[in-house]
Design a protein around this nucleic acid. Structure first.
Lengths: 211, 211
DNA sequence: CGTACTTTTGAATCGCATCAAATCTGGTGG
DNA sequence: CCACCAGATTTGATGCGATTCAAAAGTACG
């Protein structure tokens, strides 16, 4: 089995029992491909290794509702506890995925205490992160979101970004222009120290919020 | 034990084994009260019955970072798998909470298969909901968020709200004025049918996005 | 009946998205 | 090594939608 996985996926995969790993199938997927559809009986559990998968529903009137965009790691964890998929899964960016038989996955969770604990702990951590992300997206200004991100995702008041700023902007729910402007303003106000990918909050007061 | 709990809490509490329930302590809490602080050893697990609890960290410069606002149900689930709390918990609105001894909670998860499955399933469902909420908050217009909410939280293209519109606006990350305006515009465009607390999407095309 | 809160509409302002365009960067092939 | 390209970074101008402040009308509840 070729385990060329992303960092996030790796940590999630690390705990998977060998028996279950052997049942995993790695598959390259192309943009537009459908992994499963709403209502189909649940047969497989998926994990994104590369690319992007979107879970969507179709609203009346053709509008597409995105429930989740996954760029690494498991998705639709709730499906595991259901009998059918509750949405569509479509590849939004070509990449690779891992497929596990749902039954074997459930059996492993039931039989392997270590795996179960790790899985539960992972769910809890993901939930924590997702809720912090919700709070962040509720903030109204770019500067507030940047500070919130550094405090909640970083350590000791600083983060080392593992992505481009453009990708960071997307995660913060901002246009990249808005992020660049916020960063340069915060730096000018001495509220942030920026050295390449390392971004640190200044000890000083957060300063005014003027443009 | 007096179980006057919220709907959400009830569904979460329903699965708790009797032995663990008997160890629960109900406590009325007043605004401003601190339930635990960052770094303290983990002794208890909490569940909000009424009011609001906020999980926060303090940023350099005194700014307060809200990681999560909980208005019903368990919070800081990730703490269960850690040895210490990773943030502060402060009562933001007076109400009541339930306290469980952390050790007994962990023991129950380890010993009681039904409880464990229900807990895991609840975590997965919460994660699903939280991720959908993130996607929703990433949408830029009030109208889009309303439609997204109805499609993802409702059933068959309609929802019956269990809260005031003001509270709904807060959940959608909007001012209440913005929500009222979006609703009346969507109704005028025949994109929404509104009857009291029941709000349904029209079959027709979503119409233009003009003010 | 009175108080507190929600619902609703109006007007002014703010911050971000968007469109545009220039510069910079890393990597590729000649 | 250099020309070149794709993508990221950066700055500017404009418009839109939401926030905010303000205020009126409706509603629930004691």
């Amino acid at each position: 089995m070729d385990w060329q996985a992303l960092t996030e996926s790796q940590s999630a995969l690390a705990v998977i029992p060998l028996k279950l790993r052997e049942l995993a199938e790695r598959r390259d997927v192309a943009k537009g491909e459908t992994l499963f559809r709403l209502g189909e009986p649940l047969r497989r559990v998926f994990c994104v290794l590369a690319g992007e998968v979107r879970l969507t529903r179709h609203a009346r009137g053709g509008m597409q509702i995105v429930l989740q965009r996954s760029r690494g790691g498991f998705f639709a964890e709730a499906s595991l506890h259901a009998n059918a998929y509750h949405c569509d899964a479509v590849v939004a960016e070509s990449g690779a995925i891992l497929r596990f038989p749902a039954r074997a996955f459930r059996d492993a969770l039931a039989d392997d205490a270590a795996f179960r604990d790790a899985w539960m702990s992972r769910l809890a951590r993901e939930l924590l992160k997702s809720r912090a992300q919700c709070e962040r997206l509720g903030l109204r200004t770019a500067a507030e979101r940047v500070v919130h991100y550094i405090e909640s995702e970083g350590a000791g008041g600083s983060v080392t970004l593992t992505m481009s700023r453009k990708a960071w902007a997307a995660e913060l729910g901002l246009s990249h222009e808005a992020l660049y402007r916020a960063l340069s303003r915060l730096r000018a106000e001495r509220a942030l120290a920026i050295e390449g990918n390392r971004i640190a909050l200044a000890q000083a007061k957060p300063a005014a919020r003027r443009r």
